[in-house]
């Protein structure tokens, strides 16, 4: 998951529309992710697109569009009763085009996803991040997210 902010005079958040992703967005999604992570994961995103953009009422793959150009995306779903948790919205990915950052587009996408989570019955939104992913963690912190009641544990399998 990655979000980077940089100067972008041409893409004010107020002029951005958010809509569900379409099959024709897939190439842009892969390109945005490649731009942010340096890794091209076309088959991964094809698989994720099939799962999250299928029209299921609790899965969301949203595109931020400026004019006709996709400039960012966010992906999430409502999941319930894992580890005893009531329905909660999970954010799995967020990305804003490199030259469109620092103008609140991430916030527009996050707010749009949260609105859909609320409509689907979720009372909480959560995500999971690498501890050293300071930029993206700062973004979620700026949205008011704090540590929740769960903690991730793991072990290397011999």
């Amino acid at each position: 998951m990655a979000i980077v902010h940089r100067k972008a005079e041409t893409v004010p958040a107020a002029e951005v529309a958010v809509r569900p992703a379409e099959a024709s967005d897939l190439a842009t999604i892969v390109a945005l992710d490649t731009e942010a992570t340096g890794l091209s994961k076309a088959s991964y995103w094809k698989d994720r697109f099939a799962w999250y953009a299928s029209g299921h009422k609790e899965r969301f793959f949203l595109i931020a569009e400026h004019g006709k150009e996709p400039v960012g995306f966010i992906v999430g779903e409502v999941r319930a009763w894992e580890f005893g948790s009531p329905p909660a919205g999970w954010v799995f990915a967020i990305n804003v085009k490199d030259d469109a950052r620092l103008h609140g587009l991430g916030t527009v996408l996050f707010d749009a996803l949260c609105a859909r989570f609320r409509k689907a019955g979720a009372k909480t939104v959560r995500t999971m991040l690498a501890k050293d992913a300071q930029v993206i963690m700062s973004f979620f912190r700026s949205q008011g997210m704090m540590a929740g009641p769960f903690i991730e544990l793991e072990k290397r399998l011999a």
Partner: peptide, 18 residues
């Protein structure tokens, strides 16, 4: 310590002001 550093390094002054 790792969790403390991750938490403190992700909270900007702007977020604190919120």
């Amino acid at each position: 310590d790792d969790i403390a550093r991750a938490t403190l390094s992700s909270i900007s002054l702007a977020t604190m002001l919120k």
